Amino acid sequence: MKILLIDGTIIGSKTGAILEQVKVYIEQLNGELKLEILKLSDFEHQFVDGRPLEKYNDDMRLLVRKFEEAEGYVLATPIFQGSIPGVLKNTFDLLHPRTMRYKPVSIVANGGTHQHHLVVENQLKPILDYFRCLVTPNYVYTTTHHFGEGNVIVDQDVHDRLRELARVFVQYAEMGKNLSKETIDKH
């Protein structure tokens, strides 16, 4: 089962550090999952404006193909100015509504203040609901004080919550196997 771990920004490294830790915890729980970290910073992005997919550059088409081929996602995003990064929203705008349907998704986010965790509830979850994803009920939100030198996660509670997120994600991945295949077969 192919799982895409998405670093939803083109700058900074805290979000990627969280994603790397989640990857470790998922691998400890299920070594058979094929985990791939996808960094939006590795792609040449174009503004999504409604044109047909074949009119976008190779990187944008590759991004869509990676999302289509994945059978689950762990989405990591920073919170900037009380919102998800534009590059992440632009990526969602590129995807067909069925791309992520009935596939499991877990969310990790990082922001400068505790209040910005509401962005997950008010912006990100509605987008994922639109895609009809199987969003795990637990997400992990971190702030700067959870990190030490070199962006190493130093807060034990964050580690505990990331382990729990990984555990629930693995169970959702198992549950979603048949649901997502049925959707593909019917369309």
Rank of each mutant, 00 (worst) to 15 (best):
M1N: 13
G8A: 01
T9V: 03
I10Q: 04
G12K: 04
G12Y: 04
G16V: 02
G16N: 12
I18F: 02
I18S: 04
E20H: 05
K23P: 03
Y25R: 06
I26A: 09
I26K: 03
E27P: 13
E27A: 15
Q28Y: 00
G31S: 15
L33S: 09
E36Q: 15
K39H: 07
D42E: 07
D42C: 06
R51P: 11
P52S: 08
D59N: 11
L62M: 13
L63F: 09
V64C: 14
E68K: 12
G72K: 09
P78M: 05
P78V: 05
I79K: 09
F80L: 02
Q81G: 15
P85Y: 01
V87A: 10
N90C: 07
T91C: 03
F92R: 05
D93R: 07
L94K: 15
L95W: 04
H96Q: 11
R98L: 02
K103P: 04
S106H: 02
N110F: 04
G112A: 10
H116M: 14
H117A: 14
V120R: 00
V120D: 00
N122H: 14
N122T: 11
Q123E: 07
K125P: 11
L128Y: 04
R132E: 12
L134V: 12
T136V: 14
T142C: 06
E149K: 10
G150Y: 04
V152H: 04
V158I: 15
V158E: 10
H159Y: 09
H159A: 09
V168R: 03
E174G: 09
K177D: 01
N178V: 13
S180A: 10
E182S: 15
E182R: 13
T183L: 05
T183S: 06
D185T: 06
